[in-house]
Design a protein around this nucleic acid. Structure first.
Lengths: 211, 211
DNA sequence: TAGATTGTTAATCGATTAACAATC
DNA sequence: TAGATTGTTAATCGATTAACAATC
């Protein structure tokens, strides 16, 4: 595959949505789709779809359109979700437990292999058939199992120290539910922030804006 | 306040982050900040900050900068988080329970007043000092309490029907954790989607992209 | 072959950055 | 007043849309 560095982040952000719509089409039994038809379904322009896809290669065929299954598989490969990275979940509070139990990591290119918490009282609790481990065993676990990704569901105050440790243990990707800004000190790891409160505030704005 | 319609969504998305940094500054005891200094902290340009703020009014003072507390309060007002909208949570599974218990709705302009689930087995469970109610009581509850916002933590298949109901009961804002596309059928409600799996897939891409 | 639809280039639109006069 | 920093206009940059030749 072509080197994908330098692709606009806006294009990357649209890829999962393409993927979802292609899954849907496949379920409906559609085998081919034109950019015009897909655009109509998704509320985009056909131009944009073709431009986006052509960042990664020519997946279509003139006069025919795109093979649904081939395009879906291509996007899976571009995203990397056809191969697993090992992930660990840090923090087994309300949010951590829900993320661990609710998110289908396998479908999105990750294998959740461990859950950690600093509270003794959480230790032993079962999430996704895995026992919550005490954080003191983190270093040994990482040495033995080599996870590459961490999901952070801990308070902001604890995040800085935990991130330093995790990076020293070989973690190179973070799914960050805290407000601690990882990228500032660590520009060379992959970080994806989920700022639920930011999302809620923009909803609040749009509700106000309705009137 | 000036009519804020027509503001670029990119500007709106940055407002909560400004708000967070201003809270931080306030905690540190700073009373004034220049666009240059704030820009440095946030990793933005001073120009962008001034342009963003000037969409809503002139909050600064030449030669001085911005009053931290006044700017924070102004952004709170722009976002609307200084006034409550009543919200109900639909779906008390893993995710719904975590969102209900973990998210500080009060700090972001909402008051969570009810939790609903269709499972009898969930009914009576306590979330945030509130009993989970059976969904069959939804209509009466909405008539009596007039919530304006719904948080959807239910399976995609159930979303369509529930959304139709909710809108008929007066809901005009959705914090949507499902993949059901509300906006397609209902352009005149406020919708903010939280697509956790999309976020996870883009993280997967960026990890692949590191090498 | 004729029709359809892509891949790709060119035109437009919007967002970010730079510059600077206004002014505290 | 002189220095600092805003608000705002102009310049640049990037993303989206339109157009069309290539081609299946």
């Amino acid at each position: 595959m072509a080197n994908t560095s330098g692709i606009s982040p806006l294009v990357i952000k649209r890829l999962p949505r393409y993927y979802r719509f292609l899954e849907e089409l496949l379920k409906e039994g559609k085998s081919r789709i034109s950019s015009a038809e897909l655009a109509k379904r998704m509320g985009l322009t056909a131009s944009q779809i073709r431009q986006d896809l052509n960042c990664f290669g020519g997946f279509g065929q003139q006069g025919y359109g795109y093979s649904v299954i081939e395009l879906k598989d291509s996007i899976a490969e571009i995203l990397g979700i056809n191969k697993y990275e090992k992930a660990i979940l840090i923090g087994a509070g309300n949010l951590g437990r829900a993320i661990g139990a609710h998110v289908k990591f396998d479908e999105y290119g990750f294998k959740l292999i461990g859950v950690f918490d600093k509270k003794e009282s959480a230790t032993g609790l079962i999430i996704n058939d895995m026992p919550v481990r005490h954080i003191k065993g983190l270093e040994n676990f990482c040495r033995d199992n080599k996870p590459t990704t961490a999901i952070l569901c801990i308070p902001k105050e604890e995040a800085k120290n935990v991130v330093e440790e995790l990076i020293s243990f070989g973690i190179k990707g973070f799914w960050n539910f805290t407000h601690y800004d990882i990228a500032v000190n660590h520009p060379y790891v992959a970080v994806k922030n989920v700022h639920l409160s930011d999302s809620l505030m923009t909803l609040r704005y749009h509700i106000k804006d309705l009137d």
